[in-house]
Design a protein around this nucleic acid. Sequence first.
DNA 1: TGCAAAGTTGCAAAATAGAGAAACAAGGGG
DNA 2: CCCCTTGTTTCTCTATTTTGCAACTTTGCA
Lengths: 108, 108
Amino acid sequence: MNARDKARYKLRAEMFKALSHPMRIFMLEKLREKPWCVCELAVEVGIEKSIASKHLSQLKRVGLIEDEKRGTLVEYRLVAPCILEMAECAEATVLDKRKKHVELLQST
Amino acid sequence: MNARDKARYKLRAEMFKALSHPMRIFMLEKLREKPWCVCELAVEVGIEKSIASKHLSQLKRVGLIEDEKRGTLVEYRLVAPCILEMAECAEATVLDKRKKHVELLQST
DNA sequence: TGCAAAGTTGCAAAATAGAGAAACAAGGGG
DNA sequence: CCCCTTGTTTCTCTATTTTGCAACTTTGCA
């Protein structure tokens, strides 16, 4: 594995790590509807605003969302909706595989 | 957020968590070429076979790969190549966004 | 039966991530 | 200028993850 590949795998891993928390998935789903400010989003998902801010900063760090200041509030919006389609696709794949696995077990 | 959505977000998060390590991404890339046994794959990626085994079990747990015993060795193979295509797509999207961001910064 | 190879599992240590509370920074309106 | 609202950051504690090593299991073969 050369340095270039190493960097690529690390980048992908970091992106997936940003996606590896239920709350962050939920927040991305909300951001799919419309841009939200931290405060409203925190209430919507039912957590402290400081925690919401931290989750959002992780998503922003890997480039999945962007922010824009509007006076005292910060509006976050989804950059790549395809990421969530990807999530659905992956979920479907895994669920389908699990289903087949169960069927296989039942048929024997 | 109802219980059903909660479970769905958790499932997706677990899948992404399985993808959130550079070594596991690398192993999936290798498995894209052909099925590998633990021993060979460990040598290929340059880690202890016990560690390779643990990484592989994480990928298997979420259904991304499958294993089959062949005598004393265990052959792992990729179940969902679309996951990796997905990873490339996502990477491209994020990189593209970052590139635009850089261009934007440079133009101002 | 004994041994070697291939994998898995258990354990302890180190590293990392997450939550909660409080402090801190930046605007906007009185 | 003062204060309130909005967000971010820091600190501490806890939980999870990763690693390296050793022990253990299973299988194939002499």
